[in-house]
Structure formats: structure tokens, C-alpha cells
């Protein structure tokens, strides 16, 4: 059985980002630390657990992004992934999810995967679309927001629980090949192991050019969101902040 996990590199924290000088995207030259999208860590972990509990399972990973995005493939090798593919895309530019999914599907179609996993959304662009669109491009059934997965190899099917609002769950059977988007909390993602990192040190990452997809939407501008409430910022040092909070809570009569 072959599993492909789609992973994305995102900034370690959004605190370092700002609106770009041209105003039409995010400035990331100030970002020094990147990580694997948290939801994708859960997706990769789920694939690795299937690999460990069944025989003859290969887990590949694929990412789309600028050159630095290769770092998440290295991390995936450290966690136990077998082969990594990198689709080179522009940095500092809004990527249309349709175009991303078209490129991912084009590369994924070159392998023969029984299962494709990805995170339920990316922490930076928050689209929640890439997996569903990639599946549709490949003509595969898709279940989004999976919180439990069990493989029935004989029946070539999966039993999946997907999560809805308020914690309601749908229990679904889907035949393989298929794609699942994985929700956080399904497992506890492992840390890369030093031995695997060392073994993967000179392992290749195959990079292909991310050309030829046609974007269907453009980003016209980035704005700071409007305040929905009073948003009074307490000025001064910690002592002043403590006093002010105390004063407000006293006034609201909620202190014991």
C-alpha cells in the first residue's frame, strides 16, 4: 500500500509577518523560523502509524512552496517518511488553492497511491480546500476533517469518522483509493528521531517546477481586520496593567 501525505511549510509564528509594502500580500522577509503546518503533522503521523501496523506500506510526502519548503520534507524524513517530492513555487505571492491543487494532483498522479492524506487546513492561508480539490482533480472520493481512521486492507476500504460542528461525528465507509483531510487531535505527532534525521541527511528531495497551473482568483489587497469591540489597550508597565485589570474586574463586580 502506498500513502502520499501533502505537507506545507508555514511561519513558526504569525507575529513576525506584516503587510507587504505593495499592500497586496504578506511580507515574509522578516520571518526567520518556519515549521511544518500543525495539521499536516497529524496527517503524516496517521500515515506513519498505518505503515507501522501493516506490512508493505510506503509513505511519501509532497510539498509545494519556495526553495525553503524543502525543510519540511527533511523533517518528514526524520519522522519516518520514505520519499519526498517538492514542487517549486513562488514565495511572497498569494497562491490560488485551485492552482495549488492542480499542481499537487498532476504530481500525485505520477505515483500510484492508495491513500492521500493532508491536514484539514493550513495555519497561514486557512483555505480548507487543497485536499478536497486535489481529490476532485484525481477523480478520488474525499472525506474531510477525519478524527479517526481504520484501514480494511481486504475490503480495500476505510472506516472514517469525520467531525462536524459542536463535536458531532459522521461514521463513513469510503473505498480506496481516496483522500482524507486530517483534523488535529487524531493522534500525537512524533518528533523526528536523530537516527532517522542522520540516515536521511543525504537522501534526495526531488524538485519539480510548479509551472502551468492557471489561477482562478487573485489577492487584491491585505488589510488589518477592523475592531469588533472597544479594544482598549492598557498602557504602561506590568504594574499599571495589573491595576487596570483589577479596577475593571472590581467595577464589574466579579472578584471574590
Amino acid at each position: 500500500m502506498n500513502i502520499l501525505v501533502l505537507i506545507k511549510q508555514v511561519p513558526q509564528t504569525e507575529a513576525a509577518t506584516d503587510i507587504s509594502p505593495s499592500g497586496d500580500f504578506i511580507e515574509r522577509s522578516t520571518v526567520t523560523l518556519y515549521k511544518m503546518n500543525r495539521f499536516d503533522e497529524y496527517a503524516l503521523e496517521e500515515a506513519l502509524r498505518i505503515k507501522e501496523s501493516h506490512s508493505g506500506v510506503h509513505v511519501d510526502v509532497m510539498t509545494l512552496g519556495p526553495d525553503r519548503a524543502k525543510e519540511v520534507i527533511r523533517r518528514a524524513y526524520g519522522m519516518g517518511a520514505d520519499n519526498g517530492f517538492h514542487i517549486l513555487a513562488a514565495d511572497n505571492e498569494y497562491l490560488d488553492p485551485s492552482a495549488v491543487a492542480e499542481l499537487l494532483a498532476r504530481e500525485a498522479a505520477k505515483g500510484s497511491y492508495d491513500l492521500i492524506f493532508c491536514g484539514v487546513m493550513s495555519e497561514d492561508m486557512m483555505q480548507s480546500q487543497t485536499g478536497q480539490m486535489t481529490a476532485e482533480n484525481l477523480g478520488l472520493p474525499c472525506v474531510s476533517s477525519a478524527v479517526s481512521v481504520s484501514v480494511d486492507e481486504g475490503a480495500k476500504s476505510l472506516r472514517v469518522k469525520r467531525e462536524l460542528e459542536g463535536g458531532v461525528r459522521h461514521d463513513i465507509t469510503v473505498s480506496m483509493p481516496c483522500l482524507l483531510t486530517i483534523q488535529a487531535g487524531i493522534n500525537t505527532p512524533r518528533y523526528p528521531s536523530l537516527s532517522k534525521v542522520l540516515r536521511a541527511a543525504d537522501k534526495e528531495v526531488l524538485t519539480v517546477d510548479g509551472q502551468g497551473a492557471s489561477p482562478r482568483q487573485v489577492c487584491s489587497a491585505i488589510r488589518h481586520p477592523e475592531k469588533q469591540r472597544a479594544g482598549v489597550v492598557v498602557e504602561g508597565g506590568r504594574t499599571e496593567k495589573v491595576r487596570e485589570l483589577y479596577r475593571v474586574l472590581r467595577q464589574k463586580n466579579i472578584l471574590g
Partner: peptide
């Protein structure tokens, strides 16, 4: 809707229709 149900089908619907899909 950008609900659990909507996110499950709308992006794929867009692919079927060669349409842009703007979420949330």
C-alpha cells in the same frame, strides 16, 4: 456555507465547474 458540510463538497464542486473557490 463554510461549515463542516460546505467545506466537504464546495471546493470539489468548484473544480467540477472550473470555478474559483473563495473560502471562509
Amino acid at each position: 456555507p463554510h461549515s463542516a458540510e460546505g467545506t466537504d463538497y464546495a471546493p470539489a464542486l468548484a473544480v467540477r465547474l472550473n470555478a474559483a473557490c473563495i473560502s471562509a
